[in-house]
């Protein structure tokens, strides 16, 4: 088939399509499903007993706000990257809060290290949050993947990595409401580390997760 025939065929068989919603609107759709699910998980396990004390601690508030903002920003960036013409400088939207999250956890670790030395690392071995983070982030991850697949991710590794980071970060923020005993080292290794690990894993398999060619939905 030559190109003119292809053009003829594509245009003569054209049907109206439903335009993809903006990244902001799809982010709202993602939150509309994810927030109730995370609220239900929190309700099921119950708030941690020391939550009131934690909320009075600036470090706890900053760390978890940073995780929450990382989740929102990474989700928005993942959705934006599923539209052709995505500019790589938009990545700073996700990178800046992720670095803030890392820095706030790192600052906590430094303070714990100065106070307790090597013994501050004990909690890392006793507290393993990866299953809880995966469990909390599972539904947000699946929903985000569905929303991302409605577009056309030209860099599937990047999009999948951002989606996994978003799900893990928002899962981590929710986890801190019902999971007690997390020290700064636990936050750095198990929360931030899990998010980074899951993001790298998703990025490696991104082309398999998102390689399906885009298909316009009928209007």
């Amino acid at each position: 088939m030559n190109t003119d025939q292809l053009i003829q065929e594509l245009s003569s068989g054209l049907t109206p399509v439903k335009r993809l919603h903006s990244p902001g609107r799809r982010l709202v759709q993602w939150l509309a499903v994810s927030v109730p699910v995370l609220a239900a998980i929190t309700w099921f396990f119950g708030f941690r007993p020391d939550l009131a004390q934690c909320l009075a601690d600036n470090r706890f508030v900053i760390q978890n706000l940073a995780a929450l903002v990382t989740g929102l920003a990474a989700a928005w960036t993942a959705l934006a990257s599923s539209v052709p013409g995505f500019r790589s400088r938009t990545l700073t939207v996700a990178v800046v809060p992720a670095l803030l999250w890392l820095a706030s956890a790192g600052e906590g670790c430094w303070a714990e290290w100065q106070a307790n030395g090597w013994s501050s690392l004990d909690s890392v071995l006793h507290q393993k949050c990866l299953p809880e983070i995966v469990g909390s982030g599972l539904v947000p991850a699946l929903v985000l993947m569905v929303l991302v697949r409605r577009g056309l991710a030209l860099n599937p590794g990047l999009t999948a990595g951002l989606a996994a980071l978003a799900a893990a970060a928002i899962g981590s923020a929710a986890l801190s409401l019902f999971h007690d005993g997390d020290t700064a080292w636990v936050t750095l290794t198990w929360h931030v580390g899990s998010a980074a690990g899951l993001s790298a894993l998703a990025s490696a398999f991104g082309s398999r997760l998102l390689s399906r060619p885009a298909r316009s939905l009928p209007a």
Binding site: T3, L6, V17, K18, S22, G151, L152, A214
Partner: peptide, 20 residues
């Protein structure tokens, strides 16, 4: 090159809903 042009048009066709 012509194969690439046709692939481009097919991709554009499948992704036309993503244009804002």
């Amino acid at each position: 090159v012509e194969d690439a042009v046709q692939e481009i048009l097919l991709t554009l066709h499948g992704a036309r809903h993503t244009y804002d």
